[in-house]
Nucleic acid binder design. Structure first.
Lengths: 148, 148
DNA sequence: GACAACTACTTGCGTACGGAAGCAATACGG
DNA sequence: CCGTATTGCTTCCGTACGCAAGTAGTTGTC
């Protein structure tokens, strides 16, 4: 039924707004980064050699290539990521996680897990959260670059 | 468990990115409006007298008051909404849906329902979509201004 | 090996947003 | 009442984003 799908979509949009509200403040004040910046670091963290090309990052973050360029610049200035060229293909410039980046992403993930847990802390069983995650995962199946 | 919650949150963020990608193009080219603008009209549509104060709209759309001011301006220019003052409280200026607004929102909802249905058209049963909607709704429970 | 097509960025431009500051108008406490 | 706080809205400023155009490097074709 159309209405069921649409209703689910509307609820999803509302839920994501709520999450953004809850997360942005604490993340910024504790680690000085925006949610998307932390996600960028997390993608690097679990990539082979802890590095990814900007195009790869763009796909994984669902943003445009130009956004990745601009997002990486301040992180580079903060020495959370570095820049590495590819030996064979001079077009590629990898974004590499630095030691400081590893430390920060470890801490930031703690914060994110904490905040996530708070979202569900009342009225939710572990199973329900799992189920929600599984259903949502299905919406983005056959897409590359899933995070955990 | 923290990780379960966090995983669900990550999947939700990805799902919402996918939705935004799928919806923005068609909506813009068919009706000339962005998703948020259509949602604004939809909120008006189901409000008493088909009108809401800007503050009300902001809460329902999960955006700031300034955003509502700016969003309403072009819609007003297109004669999709009007502006009405409150008889008792001169501070309030309602955003009112016009006839043209009603027509557009009716059409746009069709488009949105169609797009929503496509998101789920493979691998989803009606029950699963319903369940997803219910779980997502729980995330924003105790918040005002649910759409339908 | 030269030329076209493609890829990985980068930069400029227009748009959308939140937060702070400002301005009326209303509510409230004495 | 009268001053203060609060509310509804608007405007300004800084930030983040996508898209289009540009550049440099690579692949493919004949």
């Amino acid at each position: 039924m159309k209405n069921t799908s649409f209703s689910a979509v509307l609820h999803l949009l509302r839920a994501r707004s709520r999450l953004a509200e809850k997360f942005t403040g604490p993340l910024g004040s504790v680690h000085g980064l925006a949610l998307n910046e932390v996600l960028l670091l997390m993608h690097l963290e679990r990539a082979p050699m802890q590095r990814l090309s900007r195009i790869d990052l763009a796909k994984r973050l669902s943003v445009s290539a130009s956004t990745v360029t601009r997002m990486a610049a301040p992180l580079e200035k903060l020495r959370l990521v570095g820049r590495e060229a590819d030996a064979r293909d001079a077009r590629l410039s990898y974004v590499v996680l630095t030691k400081a980046g590893v430390r920060l992403v470890t801490d930031a993930r703690q914060t994110l897990e904490q905040l996530s847990a708070e979202v569900f802390k009342d009225r939710w069983t572990e199973t329900e959260i799992q189920q929600l995650g599984k259903l949502l995962a299905r919406m983005t199946a056959s897409q590359p670059g899933e995070l955990p």
